[in-house]
Design a protein around this nucleic acid. Sequence first.
DNA 1: AATTATTATGATATTGATTTCATATCGTGA
DNA 2: TCACGATATGAAATCAATATCATAATAATT
Lengths: 330, 330
Amino acid sequence: MNISEFAKEAGVSVSAVSRYFNNGYLAEDKKEKIEAALKRTGYMPSYSARAVRSKVTKLIGVILPKLSSESISRVTEGISEVLGEEGFELLLVNTANDYNREISSLELFRQNRVDGVILLASVFTDLHRSLLAKMRVPVVIIGQQLKGYNCVCHNDEGAAYSMTKLMLNKGAKRPAFIGANPDDKAAGLDRRLGFERAVKEAGLTVDPKYCEIAKFSMSSGYEKARRLFSNRLKPDCLFCATDNIAAGAMQYLRENNIRVPDDVMVGGVGDSRFDKVLYVPLSTVHLHYKTAGIEGAKMLLSEMKDRSEVHRILQLEYEIIERESTDKHC
Amino acid sequence: MNISEFAKEAGVSVSAVSRYFNNGYLAEDKKEKIEAALKRTGYMPSYSARAVRSKVTKLIGVILPKLSSESISRVTEGISEVLGEEGFELLLVNTANDYNREISSLELFRQNRVDGVILLASVFTDLHRSLLAKMRVPVVIIGQQLKGYNCVCHNDEGAAYSMTKLMLNKGAKRPAFIGANPDDKAAGLDRRLGFERAVKEAGLTVDPKYCEIAKFSMSSGYEKARRLFSNRLKPDCLFCATDNIAAGAMQYLRENNIRVPDDVMVGGVGDSRFDKVLYVPLSTVHLHYKTAGIEGAKMLLSEMKDRSEVHRILQLEYEIIERESTDKHC
DNA sequence: AATTATTATGATATTGATTTCATATCGTGA
DNA sequence: TCACGATATGAAATCAATATCATAATAATT
């Protein structure tokens, strides 16, 4: 059933029906007629047809590197909360860390599919930049900084610095690091830089032998911990760029009877739900993931309302959460 | 830029452009002309306009009770994998366990927004049923069974039964239970029934004092464990309907020096990522969440291809994963 | 009382695509 | 040579809505 069939059924004009759904001028008696007919027929206007003419889809494209990650799903939850309230729905694309899918979804979103885009990318290439430049709808980037775009990001460098410093202040002399791919500027490079700043500030040197790069998984953290601890290096503190990596590393430590925090202190980033139930509760840094989603969504909304050429960067702060994994007295 | 402007720019007819994007008859020279113009202009056909005429949105509506849950995001990952390959995108609605949002998104999906719907609901009311009946597009339900619909579900009763039996076989005599709201048929009721069957089969009786109902969170598991263990009941085994509940409960046990598994064995359901890094690695039941997503998506695809009146129910099996939390010798 | 602003109305144009239709061309087998 | 199916074409109809427009009926202001 389309609008004209429905209008006939309700005994009003097509325009009246359209006005009913779009808050135009409409007399009370017609409203009632329409509502009665609505109950009889169950008619609903077609969103696609509406979108053709009005150029509003009420859809926001959200591009994610993966779905089953605690940090990412917290961001998404924040996004969904704010946008849902404003009547927007999320068109979600899971790129599974596949570079090409990231590009192709940006392509897709150019086809008048969405009113705005939120991008949680880990890496930015020239192709990313050129596609983003072609976007005709507002874009907000969460978790990374990109010049010329609205961004909500975390103080990754500071978070890594503070956590590392916390351990060094307790007398650690052989700091080790398990990080992420430095192409990922936020979680890879910045957290590495924060670690290095703390090490240098403590009068120590950053030894590449004490640094490993892992994937964002527990098993990868386990593997890299083996490389660091199965020889004569004997690190006395370990900073991990994510809690997942830290949890995997600690599993290796437990299996090999390396005591936490007595033999080695361990610190992570992310404040994952499981941190406090690990065999040694993990010290970590809380990043405001959900807030990032909320603020990013708000940014997008205001950008959609009145598009401006000024781009804002919102950097969220962090909070150190100290637990037993760094609870060592020197 | 629309199709007729673009056709003019390319020097071909509107029909030719449409055929180019829809694999109709088209001479080679026109294809080339169009491709050249495509590069010059960056034209992309509008999805909304296409949808009006062809009634295909290439969008699948997915309704979820929450986003930041490991089990749910695994299901979603499976869905996204299969549908992404077929060129479908996900229109995701996070209902945040809010009954009304579940209803209103079903309403929304009736407005010719999506080609199909996947529903991960926890509770079914009469309103659900009547709205589902009005759906004009195929629907698949994951995680629950509902008569008259295509469903992919888990053997929740069996999973709970086997895990409980495992503990009772090791000589437990005072089994305790922390479950979920029984309105949730799968995770609430069925897992409770599985627990009860195992208890009765072992010649014991189900004592309501030993049974608690929690929310799907660690903190709720912690709370309910307090109720069970801060008195003279002294359960010697504890079955939890989810790993989150189990992890919270174990935190309480640790804080109160109740040893796992010596004083009490603990078993969960879900095979969460963190299970093996808990202070006592948790015995659990692996449910094939991702497979459920994959199979549900396949079901939807085949239903969209040729709609049949026959509805299938696919029940996935489970696998017991035994770890230290039940590693007790009697 | 005259003038203006606000509310209300429905026919018609418009949006940007696909589908239909009438028609033309070409190669192939009877 | 004729008939037929496959290929190819572009004008026009169609899809289901909103936007525009001309106009009427009130209400408010001078």
